[in-house]
Design a protein around this nucleic acid. Structure first.
Lengths: 344, 344
DNA sequence: CTGTTAGCGCCTTCAC
DNA sequence: GTGAAGGCGCTAACAG
């Protein structure tokens, strides 16, 4: 019951067997569920297990052919971002439901790091991979390079790579968000987006344009800033400083939204009135949006569900006997467009 | 160069050896760095590796005695919370610097789940464990139950468990935050805290009381709500509805802060004036605090650094030959107390 | 410098 | 219902 303490190596089946006066096989069978083992022997085995503090060595078990590792490799771009944190949580939850664990790596958006992580994951015999692609070259993900370990991409897809993908309804969300502004009477609507999120950025911009055009409008190049490197402060200032500033802004992600609101707050403190400030639509939720000094509409979604769905797609490829083949699937998770309101 | 594609099992050292016309050991040695292998043989081996798409089976490697798994088991309470997401990121980063990976499990604060995760981690031969304790019984963490796998606790400690711990300077942060309110002339200062975070809660409350008493004040039971189960809305309302409501509130975590601000926002929309609303000190940062309708002071800290420090403590216990023994260490990470100001 | 042998801990296969 | 043999993929230890 006390276990071995800190001395020596952990006990093995053999030692448990000796302790219980049976053969290693009886121990193994007992631990596997006890089919075809006499109850009294099982008891002796379990007692010995308890006594010695025995713990099965999973790595040795996995070594045998046909044994799955129970590991899912997950590589994401930024764990510190709540969006990806929740995504990872979703993957972990679904994996855990089948007794699997995730091995997690943070790429920081670096393709080289992604390549390295994938190689390591494969070496550890992961059963599958979930990736938020870092961008850049993707030859390490091409068919065959992964053996037959299934891969699911999330948030972005990689053109030319025919694998399962889970995305947000970027186009629809941006379309409906922009439409909400148009319906409120706005016609000069600025656009803010990151350059780094090329894939989602293009999709969200597409939704923005589609909504405008449906109302006979066209994107005004002077109002569109799609190239934010990092902080969007500069773009916001330029937008607000125009002779005829936009009366509303569509922001393609919450980082840009927060930057915009910071600048708006700054101007309000300097004497500007809320009426002079643009309304905002933010793709991505953020906390306390309802307390903002200008009306904010949120294109809301649930990254955790995105993670859960990614994991589900992956698990469906881990069929019992043979690798589940079938055409690559693309799932678009729904988004909700609504004015920020007190939530509690 | 193409690799094996999807057919059959992945190649082994033996096949690479045959392909290169050498023995398995020459392959192994080459892959281990190539010491004592003729360059031309190395080339042939590497060519064969490339040709066959060979990848070393880490699990088989780890099976040999003396080989480390390169895995760190990490169990946290809520990956979806940016605080823990950043904590996990910090651990991952430092682990990655030494070529290690993290196996991640989310406990959701459930001790049973924690126990299960720890057992699984140990079965996978992790080199060490980093835990944000879920609370509850901790017999599965007692000396000996972990073999001699080192353990580091973060955020909370477990009484009676003599292991390395990384904490925030909870007491100091709460003390200084409360002092800031006192210095601003407040004397009726409410307190809001979760019941679930018993450990940090007690420490932060201690800091709050210490500051009050230093000024000859005593905590007023009518103003102290330490028992929030989940949302703190009810406590806030009761505080604000007092005949003589507090002029300031110390909130022990950002969830409570946000709940408080939601309620304050609600009252402002109903016609209350900002002057009637309390000032706020929030332990834990949150975004756009400077845009809030009441002055907010932040007790700020960096969970990522907390994670990095936890990982460093752990790595220092993974000494080359013998397990690094030594007294358990406790590290308190500094916090910063400052009024919320525009950050960009 | 290179190869052979042996065995890590476990479990499938086959005998009893 | 139980045990003995053998091998998964890899690499120390020991020849040569």
């Amino acid at each position: 019951m006390v276990g071995v303490g800190s001395q020596g190596k952990p006990p093995t089946v053999k030692e448990v067997a000796r302790h219980a006066g049976v053969s290693p096989m009886t121990v193994s069978r007992t631990l596997a569920g006890g089919a075809n083992v006499r109850p009294d022997l099982q008891e002796r085995v379990l007692a010995a297990v308890h006594e010695l503090g025995y713990r099965r060595n999973e790595n040795a078990r996995i070594l045998r052919p046909g044994q799955a590792s129970g590991l899912i490799g997950v590589a994401i771009t930024n764990l510190g971002n709540p969006y990806y944190g929740n995504f990872a949580l979703g993957v972990e939850e679904v994996a855990a439901e089948t007794g699997r664990r995730i091995v997690l790596g943070n790429t920081g958006g670096d393709p080289a790091r992604e390549r390295q992580l994938v190689a390591d994951f494969l070496g550890r015999q992961v059963e599958g991979l979930v990736l938020v692609p870092a961008g850049g070259p993707s030859d390490h993900l091409q068919p065959g390079r992964l053996g037959d370990v299934p891969l699911v991409l999330a948030s972005r897809r990689i053109y030319g790579l025919d694998v399962d993908v889970v995305l947000l309804d970027d186009v629809g969300g941006a379309y409906r968000g922009t439409l909400a502004l148009l319906d409120a009477g706005h016609t000069r609507i600025g656009y803010l987006g990151y350059v780094s999120s090329a894939f989602t950025g293009a999709r969200r911009y597409e939704g923005y344009v589609r909504a405008l055009e449906e109302r006979g409008l066209h994107p005004d190049p002077a109002l569109v800033f799609r190239e934010q490197e990092d902080a969007a402060g500069g773009a916001i200032r330029r937008l607000l400083d125009l002779d005829e500033p936009p009366t509303a802004i569509f922001s393609a992600n919450n980082r840009n939204s927060i930057d915009a609101l910071r600048e708006i707050g700054r101007r309000l403190r300097s004497g500007a009135t809320p009426q002079e400030m643009p309304a905002l639509v933010s793709f991505d939720d953020f906390e306390l949006a309802e307390l903002m000094p200008v009306p904010v509409t949120i294109v809301d979604h649930d990254p955790r569900q995105l993670g859960r769905e990614a994991a589900r797609l992956l698990l469906s490829r881990l069929g019992a006997d043979a690798r589940q083949r079938g055409p690559a699937r693309m799932v678009e998770m729904p988004v909700r467009v609504a004015p920020a309101v007190p939530s509690a």
